[in-house]
């Protein structure tokens, strides 16, 4: 079994179409989609994101990270939400992705989620990363 992230994107056309849609219907369709994945035992996580105008961008191009409101004007596709599913094959991930209740101007980018087997256990940097994760896990457990 492999985990995939379904990344929801929309271009200007998709955003415009979304604004035309009946919000209740959109919510109901998404609810049915999520439920179908839950009842198939494949849904691990999923979240929707609020409007991009509420968000901000941290730009690492300069010497110090720069927090800005934009520049959304230059971003052609907006990232609106995601699902993480665990399935038996890439084809199965494609099958679930193509069932999402989305319309013209919407895209799902599907990416495999890496797991421990992608990284050798003896790699120094992986171990450092894991050390950090362990520390976080301990903090979370103590919280």
């Amino acid at each position: 079994m492999t985990k995939y992230m379904l990344i929801m994107r929309a271009d200007e056309r998709g955003v415009a179409a979304y604004e035309e849609m009946d919000f209740t219907e959109v919510i109901a369709a998404m609810g049915r989609y999520n439920e179908s994945m839950m009842k198939a035992g494949v849904l691990l996580a999923g979240e929707g994101l609020s409007d991009a105008s509420e968000g901000f961008v941290v730009d690492f191009s300069g010497e110090t990270p720069l927090v800005t409101d934009g520049p959304y004007g230059e971003i052609k596709e907006l990232f609106n939400g995601f699902w993480i599913i665990e399935v038996g094959s890439k084809a199965e991930a494609a099958e679930w992705a193509s069932r999402a209740p989305l319309g013209p101007g919407a895209f799902l980018e599907v990416r495999r989620v890496t797991d421990a087997s992608d990284f050798p256990a003896d790699n120094e940097w992986v171990q450092k990363e894991e050390g950090w994760r362990e520390e976080q896990a301990q903090r979370a457990a103590q919280a």
Binding site: A40, V87, G88, S89, A91, E92, A94, E95, W96
Partner: peptide, 8 residues
């Protein structure tokens, strides 16, 4: 694709 549909 058939295998994927069948699994689902």
């Amino acid at each position: 694709r058939v295998a994927a549909v069948w699994r689902i």
